[in-house]
Amino acid sequence: MKKVSEIMDRREFIRAGGLVGVGAAAAGAAILKDRGELASKDPTGEKTVRNLTAMKNLKTQPSEDDHIRMQRELAAAMSKPVEKRRWIMVIDLRKCVGCQACTIGCVAENKLPPGVVYRPVVQTEIGEFPNVRLNFLPRPCMHCENPSCVPVCPVKATWKRPDGVVVIDYDRCIGCRYCLNACPYGARTSDFGRYYTSNEAQGAPEGKERPIYGSPAPWEGLPSNEYGKSWNRKDHGSPVGNARKCHFCLHRLENGLLPMCVSTCIGRATYFGDSNDTESLVVEKVTRNNVQTLLPHWDNKPKCYYIV
């Protein structure tokens, strides 16, 4: 065996040092550059202002429905540039009846296939008979201030927008599922390209309406409008194969509509609005009640608050 000093001559040693040095420097520079770039590159400023007319003629009533008020506040928030808004969701667990209307409303709105869910309602049983109760916990994406899902994405396909909404670029996502693993709330699910009706022909009646075995009913192929685009999942089109999650119904917000789960909540348990508007209903709810966030020890700083 040779001594260390005999392994390489001077020239080889300098070359080895140079290669290792250049490699280490390039790696360091790449990491530092991307760390600095974590902020979103979404458009900001005047071009993001929306002049929504929907609520313009409706006067504020003293005892107006929470939904009317939230919709009015939504239109007001949309009239500001995107970086001036900060969307949050507040869920009053005391009012949730576990009907799952929000879950289904979201499935219908976003045309979610089997195995993809943005807002399940988690049900837990507490105590023993006769002192027993059911707790309901709707769980959308928390749109964390410090999202653990974002930095792990290898292709910059997911990021936090200036208004706080954590989004996914379906055209870029490679479906590695790293972000699914990094979300402690299980808020991301993968679209494995399945359909609810693809096996429907088994046992279905004969006739014209009978679906062809293995081919889904036409309504399952309707495009979804997430992120304001038309996503056609036929022939393995995105979002098939992608990570998917709640996006606070950005496409509805752009048109002055509340997120679907807020609109369909029969218990008026879900609130949504701009936390930068100190007069808003959501700010009122957060400041006047005992609110909690899920798994706070991870320091994700969720923007979905629960009134308990």
């Binding site: 990491i31 930095p151 792990v152």
Partner: peptide
Amino acid sequence: LDLGRMDRLMNILIHSSFTSMMAFNAW
């Protein structure tokens, strides 16, 4: 074969994010 979008494999080199260990490893 594990990727949801096998057709976008090259994104990991083209659009790499070096905050992710996956992209770093790929390089």
